[in-house]
Nucleic acid binder design. Structure first.
Lengths: 159, 159
DNA sequence: TTAGCTGCAAAAGGTTTGCAAATTA
DNA sequence: TAATTTGCAAACCTTTTGCAGCTAA
């Protein structure tokens, strides 16, 4: 269920990604199937982050015979493999992306306009260190999007 | 929709809370109703944080005639008033609590056992400062629960 | 009296599941 | 061949909404 950090994956190269993932699947006695391949191609070709529904649409564009539930199952299987990771947005659906080798990036979501932007994960190093020291809590700063007001909205927002 | 910081509220005293909130509602031409009162009593009497469904149950125990949808509308109305705030948990439903006077607390959720614990919001001061300086992003650190591994789970977890 | 609310019922949005048939290795 | 996965359909869960009637102030 939970993503386990993986060796770098060719996140932007559909063919190479499929190949790399196929090897990992086989190593576990699992299979590379049409839905899984389509999901990987969709995530390697399209926008960095996509909701399950975005993936369903992108997959449908490739192959209309792939069922919605298979996309959900593929997303789950690939996440379990450590190939995909997801980010929870407070307001809005979970988004998926090809796993980042390192700690990944911070996701900043504006609570007003909903826009999400990335930021270096090391910005949270101080926080992570304090949480570890004070509570023994190992922060995974890229698993949920941080909420706040983006610069644009902060201008017009009351606070 | 978004909570606006409010003056301190008697979060643990049902009667006092209802009284304080009634005044705020009236000041806006709104009303203290049976569902709203029940929601406030439930949140002031029960656990600090509760999901909408937890509140529905607690309210039902007080008065079975209050409808589920009224609880949702009461939670929304009281949030709009600034009396309640909510926290998004990555895995799991949104939880509601009586608004904290200051920046509130950080919520740390273990991705393994799901347990949530609080921590001082100022632990994120460094991060908030950097996000503001680098991106003009005003972090609301208590609006979403941070994800990671709690101390107990970190012992048995691979990483 | 009269907005502001509620209760009800139905819909909506997102995700999951049981199962027989298809497919991968 | 044999185990893994899929397609389909239905179920689920949480939240939202239209509307007529109720009720707080």
């Amino acid at each position: 269920m939970e993503p386990r950090p993986a060796a770098p994956l060719p996140a932007d190269d559909p063919a190479a990604l499929v190949e790399a993932v196929t090897a990992r699947l086989h190593a576990r006695g699992e299979r590379m199937t049409k839905p899984r391949r389509a999901v990987l191609v969709a995530l390697a070709s399209g926008p960095r982050h996509a909701t399950a529904d975005d993936v369903v649409e992108a997959v449908a564009a490739q192959d209309a015979t792939v069922h919605r539930s298979s996309v959900y199952r593929a997303l789950e299987a690939l996440s379990r493999l450590g190939v995909l990771q997801h980010v929870h947005l407070g307001h809005g659906a979970t988004t998926y992306h090809v796993a980042q080798p390192d700690g990944g990036v911070l996701h900043l979501q504006c609570r007003r306009c909903g826009h999400v932007r990335g930021a270096p994960a090391d910005l949270a190093a101080d926080l992570a260190g304090r949480l570890a020291a004070d509570y023994g809590f190992r922060l995974d700063s890229s698993h949920v999007a941080l909420s706040g007001l983006c610069a644009a909205c902060a201008v017009t927002a009351p606070r």
